[in-house]
Amino acid sequence: MPDATGPDQIFQRALANGEILLPKCKDCGAYHFFPRVLCPHCHGAAISWKRATGAGWVHTTTVVRRKPERGGDYNVCMVELEEGVRMMSRVEGISPENVVIDMAVTAFVGEAEGTPAVLFKPAEA
């Protein structure tokens, strides 16, 4: 397999290795998400990659209602990471109704739709 070159490839390749990398601008120092070739804050094109601490909080959340025979209800939420970026994900390990705004969560690399994905679980108290 050739080396990852584009920002999406770098992110996905890290995920496949169980690692969550976040793009960080070398010019203004701000993180951004989703990965891209420039910084959406200052538009600088020098991007570095940092390992996410995994700490975050639920910014907003919903329960997608689905018939039990098709797999039942599930959570979709927005998580704000300690680094200051938000990503869509879901919180696993608790019922979807119990995912609430402001709850502390911890990221892990799991699987969604058959591909490696950033998922969250409730943070240890």
Partner: peptide, 25 residues
């Protein structure tokens, strides 16, 4: 969207639901 699709949001309801939830909060 590539960074949303794996989580299966129901388009577009889930987006508006999350806006409503935040407004309520």
């Amino acid at each position: 969207p590539a960074y949303e699709a794996p989580y299966n949001p129901r388009y577009p309801i889930s987006a508006y639901a999350m806006a409503a939830a935040r407004h309520m909060h």
